[in-house]
């Protein structure tokens, strides 16, 4: 464990807490893409298949349980919660995210570290996480204005993978056997997808103005 990875995990956790806070305090999920949340639930379930088979550390196990349970809870809230579900932007959240699932599944069957069920699922989850934010970014572009908590949610979600890139660079130089090309390339693509959001987020923060994304 190095400081970059720990910072990345904490930033990721903060993004989930901000989202839960928004849904819990405002009892609303306006501006939140259910499709992105469903993709994240798939990402965590397919990535943490080793939750019960490999014990890495208490920290690792606890964080996996937190990520899986929070992502499923958020999907349940937006789908089933009698108050929250009313504010779901169903007509704006129309990204065909199952296409992303199909494309990542095909890619994982072609490019993986080892051809085993667990490894292919792991590669699939890495690829899917890189593109899981797309429905959310499309929804924000369509709705134009971004409320503070949603903006912070996307900002922390993007920042966590940037910390992981620093972690991979650090591990590459400090551990002789460390090569995780699948994670690195996918992580760079993932962070790049946030780039334009980061740009508008920084501008709005600098001008102390409301975050407006160009439609």
């Amino acid at each position: 464990m190095n400081v970059f990875r720990f910072a990345g995990d904490m930033t990721h956790l903060i993004s989930i807490l901000v989202l839960l806070l928004k849904i819990y305090t405002t009892k609303s999920c306006s501006g939140i893409s259910l499709k992105t949340q469903e993709l994240y639930a798939v990402v965590f379930v397919t990535r943490y298949l080793d939750l019960v088979t490999d014990f890495i550390s208490v920290y690792n196990t606890v964080m996996k349980v937190v990520f899986i349970s929070s992502s499923l809870a958020i999907v349940w809230c937006i789908r089933r919660h009698k108050v929250v579900r009313r504010s779901y932007d169903k007509e704006l959240d129309t990204f065909r995210h199952w296409l992303l699932v199909g494309a990542c599944a095909v890619l994982a069957l072609v490019v993986h570290e080892k051809f085993s069920f667990q490894e292919v699922c792991w590669a699939f989850s890495i690829y899917l996480e890189a593109v899981a934010i797309l429905p959310q970014l499309v929804l924000l572009q369509r709705s134009g204005n971004v409320d503070n908590l949603t903006g912070q949610y996307v900002f922390f979600l993007g920042a966590y993978r940037a910390f992981y890139i620093l972690n991979w660079i650090y591990r590459y130089y400090s551990e002789q056997h460390f090569t995780r090309w699948i994670s690195c390339v996918s992580g760079i693509v993932q962070t790049a997808l946030y780039a334009d959001f980061f740009y508008y987020y920084f501008i709005s923060w600098k001008n102390n103005s409301k975050l407006q994304l160009p439609a």
Partner: peptide, 10 residues
């Protein structure tokens, strides 16, 4: 050094 197959990252 653990084999690279062990996924120790989240």
């Amino acid at each position: 050094t653990e084999p690279s197959s062990v996924k120790d990252e989240l």
